[in-house]
C-alpha cells in the first residue's frame, strides 16, 4: 500500500516538476526536419556567381504555394551561408506567376484553390518562369524526374529520405557536395 502511494507520488511529482515547453526528443516534427534540410542545401549546394542577379549579397530561399512548414520556414530568415558573409532572405509566392528569381525554391505539396492546385502544376509553371540557376526542392512523389532536383520523402525506416537528380542540377550549373550525396538517405535519380 505504502509502495503504491509512493509510486503515485513519484509519478505526480514528475508531472508537476515539468512545465510546458518545446519538446526535444529523438522523434522530431518532420516539418522542422524538412525545413532544416533546406538550410543544409543552402550550405552544401554550389551555385554559379550571380545566380540571382538582384540578390544584393543575399541568399534567397523561396516557397511556392501554401506553407507546409508551420513556422519553421520563417526561422530560416537571417541565417547565413558562406561562412556568415551572406544572409538568407525568404520569399513566398502564391503561384508561379508571382515567382521572382531565387537560389533555392521549395514547391509546396499542399493543395490550393488558386490556378495551381497541385505541386505538379506549380513545378510546370515554375519551369517556365525560373531563373536558370535555381535549385528546385519538392516534397511530392515523382517530381524528381519531372524537373525538381531534390525530392523529400519519408521512408519506412522513419527517416526523411532525399531523391537527388544530379544530372538536372548540373544541367543548370548547380551541384551538391559529396558530403550530402553519400548520405545513406540519398537516392540518386538516374
Amino acid at each position: 500500500m505504502t509502495r503504491n502511494i509512493l509510486l503515485t507520488l513519484i509519478v505526480c511529482g514528475v508531472w508537476l516538476a515539468t512545465s510546458v515547453c518545446n519538446a526535444q526528443t529523438p522523434v522530431k516534427d518532420e516539418r522542422q526536419v524538412k525545413a532544416t534540410y533546406l538550410y543544409f542545401f543552402s550550405q552544401y549546394g554550389t551555385w554559379p556567381e550571380n545566380a540571382v542577379p538582384d540578390a544584393q549579397g543575399q541568399f534567397i530561399v523561396g516557397l511556392l504555394g501554401p506553407d507546409p512548414f508551420g513556422g519553421y520556414f520563417d526561422a530560416l530568415k537571417g541565417k547565413t551561408v558562406a561562412g556568415g558573409k551572406i544572409k538568407i532572405e525568404i520569399r513566398r509566392f502564391e503561384s508561379s506567376n508571382d515567382y521572382k528569381p531565387c537560389h533555392l525554391v521549395f514547391i509546396s505539396p499542399e493543395a490550393a484553390d488558386n490556378g495551381e492546385g497541385t505541386a505538379e502544376q506549380r513545378l510546370a509553371g515554375l519551369l517556365k518562369k525560373r531563373n536558370p540557376h535555381v535549385m528546385i526542392v519538392s516534397d511530392s512523389p515523382g517530381l524528381a524526374t519531372a524537373g525538381a532536383m531534390i525530392n523529400n520523402f519519408i521512408a519506412a525506416d522513419g527517416r526523411v529520405h532525399l531523391e537527388i537528380n544530379r544530372a538536372e542540377m548540373q544541367k543548370q550549373g548547380l551541384d551538391m557536395s559529396p558530403k550530402v550525396l553519400q548520405l545513406s538517405i540519398v537516392h540518386l535519380v538516374p
Binding site: K28, V33, A35, F40, D74, A75, I154, R159
Partner: peptide
C-alpha cells in the same frame, strides 16, 4: 502560422546544431 508571419517570433530551428549526418539519422514518426 500567424496571419502575418512577421508579427510573431518563428519557432527556433533547433536541428541546425546537428551535422548533416546527424540530421539524416533523425527519426520522424511513421
Amino acid at each position: 502560422v500567424p496571419a502575418n508571419p512577421a508579427d510573431v517570433e518563428p519557432p527556433a530551428l533547433e536541428l541546425l546544431d546537428l551535422s548533416i549526418e546527424e540530421l539524416s539519422q533523425t527519426q520522424v514518426r511513421v
